[in-house]
Every structure is written in C-alpha cells, then in structure tokens.
Design a protein around this nucleic acid. Structure first.
Lengths: 195, 195
DNA sequence: AAATAGCCTTAAGGTAGGTTAAGAGAGCAT
DNA sequence: ATGCTCTCTTAACCTACCTTAAGGCTATTT
C-alpha cells in the first residue's frame, strides 16, 4: 500500500474514524495518478468521471468565457478534493478545466465506484454528505463576498484566509480568482503597500 | 394529517419512493407554519435552527452589506427548501435574512430532528445528500455565470430559466438578485425592448 | 377620496475596474 | 552569454454600472 493512501485514510479518520474493513475498501478502491505542471486533469467537453483527492501539489479549476478569458473558480492543494461536480453527477460534458499548477499527485475513483462505496459502507455516504454540505456553505460564503465587497477587500480576505496559497501561486492566478485583471490587482497592491 | 404534508411526501416520492414507515416519520416530524407577506422567517443574528420546505408562497433570502444595501441570493417558491445552511450546520448566528414576498406556508423541522431522521432512516440521508449535491451544482453554475457575463445576459437568462418567478416578483427584487440597481435594470429593459 | 407607499423610468454626473501598450526584471533553455 | 518566456508594474484612455434626484403610475391604506 502506498504512502498516498495512508494520507487519504488519515484524512477520513479526521472526519469519522474508519474501521478495518473501511480502510481496506479505501486501499482497494483509490488509484494513484501523477500529473505534471501545466497538464490537465479535465478539459472542457470531457465528461468528468473521476473524483480526485489531492495528495501533493496544486490545481486550479477555471472556466473560459465566450470572450476567451479564463476565470479561476477554485484552487485545490494537499487534502482537498477536485472535480467538476456538475459533470460528475449529471454525467454531462464539463464546461470547466482543471490544470496542475505544480507537479502533483492525486488519488481517484470513478463516480460509479464512489456510489458503490456509499452503498457498501454508509460511513462514506455520511462523510461525503458532510463534505458536500461544507462545500455548499463555503460556496455560499464566496457568493456573499462576491456581491458585497470590492476587489481590494476580496484580495485582503484571500491573503488572510489562505496565506499558504497566497505565497505559492502567481498574482495572475489570484487576480483571476478574485475576478479582476492582473493590471488592476497591481494597482490594488500598490495602494495597500502605501497605506 | 394535513394537505401540506401530502405535498411534501409527494415531493420525496419523486426523488426516492418512501415506504409506509418513512411516510409516517414525515407526518410525525414536519410542522406547518404560515408566514404573512413582509414577515421574516430568519433575521441576521438569529441562529437558523429550522429547515423549511415551501408548500405555498414565495420567499427571498438576502444579505445586507456594510453600506446597508440588500443583495438577494435566492428565491424559493413551492417545492423548494429555504434555510441558511451555514447557520443551520455550524450553529452560528446567520448573516442572512429570509423574508416572505407573499403570504406563505412552510413545513419545517429543527436541524436536530432532521439529523435524527437521517440516523433512523438512511433513505432521508440519501435524499438530502442528493439535494445538497444539486444545490452545490446550481450554486456553482451561478458563480460561473456571475464571473463571465454582463447584467443584460444575466437578466435574459433569468427570464428564460425561471419564467414563472420572473412574472411573479418585482423588478426591484430581480435587480437585487442580478447584482444591479433597479435604475440600471430599467436601462437594460429599455435596450432589450428596442432591439 | 385622499393620502401614502412602492414601483418603474429618465437623466446627469461619478467611480470601479477593463483595455491596450510598453517596459523592467526573473527564470529557464539553447 | 543570449534569447525566450513569464510575471509584475505603470499609465492613458474607455465602459459598465452606480448615485442622486426627480416625476409619473398603480396599489394599498385610512
């Protein structure tokens, strides 16, 4: 069994302690995959069939709008999940891209294996209901912030909430996540530095 | 047993057929409440302890930003759920308001009763995992749209996706949902009418 | 019937943030 | 070393949307 799988098991145990059988099920089901920097885990038009857990590295999920501009929706680093839930659950082509920002390692299962796991071991159904709830809540917080604050406030908040990410990725990526151009982010940074 | 409860049971049956015991559990657990137009189901600072199903009527969920402006986040009409999931699950004071736009009827349970229901009847845990998934997916779609389209596009999309709501609520409410002022929505409407 | 309140529109002037373009510095490859 | 690519910055001009203010219309209340 790989180190990677132990990391995932430790992750699950932090939510709900797994018994021996459940740990074995994780070891049997999840497969490891390495993705090199600038390579894609998912591209627009693909049907997302894998649910991925980031063991090591960093990904960004983004969409391309009708003018060809990219908009980052989410970053995932160690101990985060990354997949297009819309495509995964609806089994329809994705409108999103998932790109590795660093050389990375993930553990993944197909959606069908995951649903089977939920049936065989209710513990996992329970864990994923909580994970989905948490994701929903944090998305709602993001919408709240989006409608009610300026780019400068979002920038400061991002620096505060995700300091490790903040120092790990480029300002171009941060700007895209905050919904501004890199040029305007530069102006914001100058203004903050002055004050 | 009330008509309201039958509507909720029919709703559940459309997701996963309930057996006799599960139907009885719904009848035992959910309570009815009527809310008059302009009255609040939830106000900022309250801890949201009830999960509500709209039997009849229409609600809006909104936040008030630091400048005192309201931002609509969601409308709920018949056969939708309405609650602040953040406050509900984290048991922390809400930053949101839920207001009845019409005289309305809801069925509700407390979060503790709901969690107990999940333990007693896995069917409901299953249904709510799917509902949470769907909510997550549709929120993600909304974020996608928010970052990638103009106010005019969002307006036309809203008219197309929710035609009944579109004709049921005021433009002031729609503008707040779309993230523009009523004045600017008026300009958009004029422009669309001309073309 | 009058008064009040909410809704919708128009218009003038203002601001946050975008676009385009250009240059300077860092890191990587030949 | 030389070039290449990427990142970050600065600046001039532009646009989508906001603010304020005012007027007319309709619905509700008294």
């Amino acid at each position: 069994m790989s180190d990677s799988t132990n990391i995932l098991i430790a992750y699950f145990n932090r939510h709900i302690p797994l018994n021996y059988e459940e740990e074995e099920a994780v070891k049997a089901l999840f497969k490891e995959r390495k993705i090199r920097r600038r390579h894609y885990l998912l591209q627009e038009g693909d049907i997302c069939i894998n649910n991925c857990f980031v063991v090591e590295g960093c990904f960004r999920m983004f969409m391309v709008d009708k003018n060809g501009k990219e908009h980052n929706l989410q970053f995932s680093t160690e101990n985060w999940w990354i997949s297009d839930l819309y495509s995964l659950f609806k089994r329809e082509p994705s409108r999103l891209y998932i790109e590795a920002l660093e050389n990375s390692t993930v553990l993944y299962t197909t959606i069908d294996e995951l649903l089977q796991l939920f049936e065989d071991y209710p513990t996992f159904s329970h864990i994923f209901r909580i994970l989905t709830q948490n994701a929903l809540v944090s998305q709602q917080q993001r919408i709240l912030q989006y409608v009610s604050s300026t780019a400068e406030e979002r920038y400061l908040d991002f620096a505060k909430k995700r300091p490790e990410l903040f120092n790990r990725i480029s300002n171009v990526q941060i700007a895209s996540y905050l919904g501004v151009t890199p040029e305007f982010l530069s102006i914001i940074r100058k203004k903050i530095a002055k004050s």
